[in-house]
Design a protein around this nucleic acid. Structure first.
Length: 426
DNA sequence: TCTGGGGTCCTAGGACCC
DNA sequence: TCTGGGGTCCTAGGACCC
């Protein structure tokens, strides 16, 4: 059996840990730039605040009902996420925890006797809450897809289920499948949901009974086949063993305000490259391809949100590297080829790919090997910046005024990663 | 005026090889 | 005039996830 543990309204819950007076009150958390709403408490959901909706549209309602609003505080969420995951590792063993996202983890419970699963799930839920202050929901079932369905049902009926649903018999599974519309299934997005409804496939039970060949043809080939197998209780998506290195690393941002000069864009690109290089070194990798893209502001005054055309290009380096300066240089060069005078830009990004392990960099006959002093400098910068969870040390190319930086007007304090922002009890 | 950021996997199709 | 068969590698793009 497998479990999925999912934090309830994670970012909102993190804010509540340090604002207990907000329990049972509506809370929302905004994306970078205070652009849209990315986490809502149950009370905010009940008021009708839409997920991923633009903040400025919801603002009148938010003010009317006195919804507490926060800019995203990733220092805080990252730290609390780590505490939740550590708690799970203590409870079920390190090797049985697969961190799936900042607020979710799969647990491998194969060795657990089935009659103990309900009890264990309750214990997990209660311990995480006691140790971290974060409320979670637990779904248990034979496969990952089914456990996601269990979790969904637990969240939908918090009072009746106490946030724990265990699907350990055929009967319970079938009942759960009948109560789950296809668009609530993990792996079915908007496109597939529309298609399924057109075929009169309305519930997870309907989908489970479809032919494998049909899935292959209509639901994205092997992905569809896996999905149906998982719904039938047959494992098709395995637990990931250890931490796998990323094969692509990206840092992209909307600008706090639109940018109309190449200097600011270069600064932004240098900053994003530094951040991406940091992620690269954290997994002991090096990259050989640097891609840069910039997005001009859309001209039309359409009421609908549309992405403008993305202008992008890439450079493949003679040898893979993880040294920030060596990556900034080509990235900034690319900006020269992409930037067009007179246009206004609202977003930019850097992507590193062709990623290889740092210790097996393919040498290049025509290049000197990376100097050790550079490595030492990188390690030193990483240590300082990691301890502060921010880029306290940076390269001059990143700029100092940084007019393009994102807005975060409503951010709470970094209670757990800054000495001078510690929580105070009077 | 104001709409996030960071990933994964898969497929089709083109280029190229013998 | 006729124009094989099998393979690999790469890229772009679609779909999905949180």
């Amino acid at each position: 059996m497998k479990a999925i543990v999912d934090c309830n309204s994670f970012y909102c819950s993190c804010e509540r840990v340090f604002h207990p007076e907000l329990d049972h009150k509506p809370v929302v958390v905004l994306s970078n730039n205070d652009g849209c709403i990315i986490s809502r408490s149950d009370e905010a959901k009940k008021l009708g605040v839409q997920m991923a909706g633009p903040y400025f549209k919801a603002k009148p309602m938010i003010e009317k009902f006195g919804v507490s609003t926060f800019s995203s505080n990733y220092n805080l969420y990252g730290d609390l996420s780590w505490r939740v995951m550590e708690t799970l590792r203590v409870l079920v063993g390190k090797k049985n925890v697969e961190v799936y996202s900042v607020d979710e983890a799969f647990l491998d419970l194969e060795e657990m006797p089935s009659e103990k699963l309900q009890q264990l799930s309750i214990e997990i839920k209660e311990t995480v809450e006691r140790w971290t202050g974060i409320k979670v929901s637990v779904g248990v079932a034979p496969t990952k897809v089914l456990s996601k369905i269990a979790n969904h049902l637990a969240k939908k009926n918090k009072v009746a289920t106490q946030c724990v649903v265990v699907l350990d018999t055929e009967e319970k599974i079938n009942d759960a499948l009948r109560r789950t519309p296809v668009d609530d299934i993990w792996g079915v997005g908007r496109q597939y949901a529309e298609k399924l409804y057109r075929f009169q496939i309305n519930t997870a039970k309907d989908l489970q009974q479809m032919d494998i060949e049909w899935a292959k043809k209509n639901l994205g080939g092997v992905m569809g086949v896996r999905l149906i197998k998982e719904l039938r209780g047959e494992t098709a998506i395995k637990m990931e063993e250890e931490l796998v290195n990323k094969r692509m690393i990206a840092t992209t941002r909307m600008f706090g305000q639109a940018v109309d000069n190449i200097k600011d864009i270069k600064e932004a690109i240098a900053t994003y490259t530094s951040r991406a290089a940091e992620k690269l070194r954290r997994q002991n990798s090096a990259a050989r391809t640097v891609s840069v893209f910039i997005v001009p502001k859309e001209q039309s005054h359409n009421t609908y949100f549309r992405h403008g055309p993305t202008i992008s290009s890439y450079i493949t380096l003679p040898a893979a590297t993880s040294i920030t300066q060596e990556l900034i240089k080509p990235a900034v060069q690319l900006v020269n080829t992409l930037y067009e005078e007179g246009k206004i830009y609202k977003k930019a990004g850097v992507m590193l790919s062709d990623i290889v392990p740092d210790d097996s960099i393919q040498g290049n006959l025509f290049c000197a090997p990376a100097k050790n002093s550079n490595r030492l400098l990188m390690t030193m910068m990483d240590n300082v910046n990691f301890a502060m969870r921010d880029d306290v040390l940076k390269f001059a190319a990143s700029g100092t005024a940084r007019d393009w930086k994102m807005r975060q007007e409503l951010r709470s304090k970094r209670y757990t990663t800054r000495w001078n922002e510690l929580y105070e009890i009077k």
